[in-house]
């Protein structure tokens, strides 16, 4: 173990805001991407199912975004 205590670990030798700012934002972005991807899948499948049920499957406008 290279850290003397959990506090020393959290303080990162005085560079806490830089190190945790880097790791924190990365984790946030990854979580955001996964949440957005999931919600897109749910919305997309619901919308397509609805349109197919309505019998207009061949007339629907293009789905936007990526």
């Amino acid at each position: 173990m290279i850290w003397e205590s959990w506090n020393a670990f959290l303080e990162m030798g005085g560079a806490a805001q830089f190190v945790w700012g880097s790791y924190g934002v990365t984790v946030l972005l990854i979580v955001a991407e996964l949440v957005l991807l999931r919600s897109r899948r749910v919305h997309s499948t619901r919308r397509l199912s609805r349109l197919i049920r309505a019998g207009q499957g061949r007339k629907l406008p293009e789905v936007q975004g990526s």
């Binding site: 173990m1 290279i2 990162m12 030798g13 005085g14 190190v19 880097s22």
Partner: peptide, 20 residues
């Protein structure tokens, strides 16, 4: 965070390298 030692020049801030 637990195996890589403190950097002799930069101290702990170099740990950003592992995502950067």
């Amino acid at each position: 965070f637990f195996k890589a030692p403190t950097d002799a020049v930069q101290g702990e801030v170099y740990r950003i390298i592992f995502i950067h």
